[in-house]
């Protein structure tokens, strides 16, 4: 890893340089929530924040996107190769992107995601945890790769970790300074303090097996209040599911094929033509969701979004504790 130092006073210079590389999307506070939005000025950016409503995934895999256009039976791909910058991404969300990379860049890769990923610079920044964060117990409390630059707040300056060739070129710009062991030590202490604020713990030992053997009654209990609204999936930085629809125009020849984020908690997720649903109730869907997040492998990055935004107040960590047989 290459390290550099950036005085906070020089952050606007970095921002300008990023802007020359593409549209900058950064956390912005609006109406009591923080969201990634296109920004023109660093002043709009909320540098210290806890979590955005939707994860930065939305810029690489848009909530809704046209993937094809057709005329008759002839299909053409729809793609805009815009350059972009994701500025101010937290450790957990960078790790979330890495988990998505493993799905969408795996052969055969998803061209839409892959091209956007290639066209997007990622600049990380350390976060402000709250009581819902548990990134440190799912191994996502620190990002070691998946970014071009990562900014660690040292008070008056940032230690900048450089994670890519483009990041290297940026770090060679005049307003960056050399950084060494001293700054890295400072950053490590800062990170230790920051991670210390992540108090929530989740015990995943044997979790997959616990999920597999949990009985129907147990599942009914943990999902009793579930409204099957899909929010938990839609705000998740690692949910990959999408659904596809064809839209037809009135000339009945032309139209487009669009994909939209999907949720495994919804009716149609495992429904096949003819009416058979392989996951007919929230019980099977909850088993599937938890298996996907923490059973088969750890896909959860501990951002806390599914708990924070669940309209029924279902707590992901408590759900898993219940499956473990605790808090019953």
């Amino acid at each position: 890893m290459r390290y550099a130092k950036l005085a906070k006073a020089d952050l606007p210079k970095l921002f300008q340089s990023l802007k020359s590389r593409g549209e900058v999307f950064a956390p912005v506070e609006e109406g009591g929530k923080v969201t990634f939005r296109k920004v023109d000025d660093l002043k709009e950016v909320k540098l210290e924040y806890t979590r955005t409503l939707l994860p930065p995934k939305k810029l690489l895999l848009p909530p809704e996107e046209e993937i094809l256009r057709y005329e008759g039976e002839e299909y053409r791909e729809s793609f805009e190769g815009k350059k972009a910058v994701l500025f101010g991404v937290h450790h957990c969300d960078v790790n979330g992107l890495l988990k998505l990379d493993r799905v969408f860049l795996d052969s055969p890769r998803d061209e839409y995601y892959a091209r956007r990923r290639e066209n997007t610079l990622v600049v990380g920044i350390s976060c402000v945890p709250d009581r819902y964060c548990f990134c440190t117990s799912v191994g996502s409390g620190y990002a070691t790769t998946g970014f071009d630059l990562f900014l660690h707040d040292l008070g008056r300056e940032y230690l900048v970790r450089v994670g890519s060739g483009e990041g290297y070129r940026l770090s060679k710009e005049g307003y960056f300074q050399e950084a060494g062991k001293k700054e890295v030590e400072q950053a490590a202490r800062m990170e230790e303090r920051r991670m210390g604020k992540v108090r929530r713990r989740i015990n995943l030992a044997g979790m997959g097996d616990l999920i597999e053997t949990e009985g129907k009654e147990g599942w009914e209990e943990v999902s009793a209040k579930c409204l099957a609204c899909g929010t938990c999936n839609l705000v998740c930085p690692t949910c990959q599911c999408y659904d596809v629809s064809d839209l037809l125009t009135l000339d009945v020849r032309k139209g487009s094929r669009v994909r939209r984020w999907d949720s495994c908690m919804l009716k149609r997720h495992a429904l096949v033509a003819g009416g058979l649903n392989f996951r007919p109730t929230v019980v099977e869907r909850t088993v599937n969701r938890l298996s996907c997040k923490v059973g088969e492998e750890v896909r959860c990055v501990g951002c806390g979004r599914c708990t924070v935004y669940c309209p029924a107040g279902i707590d992901f960590v408590e759900m898993l504790s219940a499956v473990r047989g605790e808090a019953r």
Binding site: V103, D209, L210, C241, D243, V287, C292, G295, E296
Partner: peptide, 23 residues
């Protein structure tokens, strides 16, 4: 097996089967 293989290439995850450690 028959499931809802929407994308066919292991991305959209509709066809996933199994629970716990085996999916």
């Amino acid at each position: 097996m028959e499931r809802r293989m929407k994308c066919g290439i292991g991305k959209c995850r509709h066809c996933v089967v199994g629970a716990g450690t085996s999916m």
